[in-house]
Computed example of a mutant assay.
Amino acid sequence: MRVIAITGGIASGKSAVTNQIRMAGYPVVDADLVSRQVVEPGTHTLEEIKETFGEDIIKNGVLDRKLLGQKVFGNQALLKQLTKITAPEIQSAIQDQLSFYKIKGKSLVFCAIPLFFEQHYEETGWFDQVVVVSSNERTQLDRLMARDHLDEWEAQSRIKAQLPLKTKMGKADVVIENDGTPEELEAKVAHYLKEVKEG
């Protein structure tokens, strides 16, 4: 089974790429979805977050992700604490999903992992190829502000919490640039999938 990682910067267009891949019929393991599942009510991960960050982080039994984001972004020490709690759980759940697809006899699986390099997934040996979705800094900032209703400072702090996109691009096997229209991105992804299928 070939496993291809999709990563990039925050708001660089990873979701658009993975949605198109999913629509084309390929299985996609989504780390963002997994990261929500591991902090669902009743999980020990959620209990640990509550103990570390305080009772106010839970609203009606559910994690207040917006409040948690405000606490950790821009504070490296708190972000590290959160990562220490959640990262091993997310990695374990991703491994379980990959094992499931292998048992199902899938020949190609994609894995969307926003923090691929930050969490050192390249060292796991699970991946045959790494694709980085990139965009220029201004486009990335504008998209993030619009998408998450952030001011420029908040958006900048979230971008700075990740490895620079240039660094990620330097480590990629394939770079898909997303500075144009959605239609242009769609055409690039379709071309890429055709190459993967033929390769």
Score class of each variant (00 low, 15 high):
residue 1 M to F: 09
residue 2 R to Q: 12
residue 6 I to W: 03
residue 6 I to K: 02
residue 9 G to R: 00
residue 12 S to Y: 02
residue 18 T to H: 01
residue 19 N to R: 15
residue 20 Q to L: 14
residue 21 I to Y: 01
residue 21 I to P: 00
residue 26 Y to G: 09
residue 30 D to E: 13
residue 30 D to S: 08
residue 36 R to W: 01
residue 37 Q to A: 07
residue 38 V to N: 00
residue 40 E to H: 01
residue 43 T to D: 02
residue 44 H to F: 13
residue 49 I to W: 00
residue 50 K to H: 12
residue 51 E to I: 15
residue 53 F to H: 03
residue 53 F to G: 04
residue 58 I to M: 05
residue 61 G to N: 03
residue 75 N to R: 05
residue 77 A to L: 12
residue 82 L to K: 00
residue 90 I to N: 00
residue 95 Q to C: 13
residue 96 D to Y: 08
residue 98 L to F: 03
residue 98 L to M: 06
residue 98 L to C: 09
residue 117 F to T: 00
residue 118 E to L: 11
residue 120 H to N: 15
residue 124 T to D: 08
residue 128 D to S: 11
residue 134 S to P: 07
residue 137 E to V: 15
residue 137 E to N: 14
residue 139 T to G: 08
residue 140 Q to M: 09
residue 145 M to F: 10
residue 149 H to C: 14
residue 153 W to T: 15
residue 159 I to N: 05
residue 159 I to L: 11
residue 160 K to S: 13
residue 161 A to K: 10
residue 161 A to M: 10
residue 163 L to C: 07
residue 168 K to Y: 02
residue 177 E to I: 07
residue 183 E to C: 09
residue 184 E to I: 08
residue 194 K to H: 15
residue 195 E to H: 11
residue 195 E to D: 08
residue 195 E to A: 12
residue 198 E to P: 06
